[in-house]
Amino acid sequence: MTATAFAFAPGDIVRVKDDWPERRGPAHIRTPYYVRGVQGQIVRHLGDFPNPEDLAFGRPAEPRPLYHVRFKKGVIWAEDRADDALLVEIFGHWLEKP
């Protein structure tokens, strides 16, 4: 799959995949558990970087788009103030349209 298959634009509403590869076997992922399945908004495309999920195992790693995604904190932890935010770097292959 090419990098452009995951293209998102600033302002797009996205959802992080509710996927748990670490429960299925050896895995190295850079998507924190707390954003899985959560909806956020693309801030910007930070660039394309080799997929760390392959780099971690010494496999050939394709460049993947990396996005800065903003989440409302109250959506993740209910006790939080709704207008505080979390800004997280997430690879395009972890994002889907809600």
Binding site: W20, E22, R23, P32, Y33, Y34, R36, I76, W77, A78
Partner: peptide, 14 residues
Amino acid sequence: TPAKESQRSHHDLG
């Protein structure tokens, strides 16, 4: 949240 937290790996500390 608690259900999700129970799925985290031990280094995934947020």
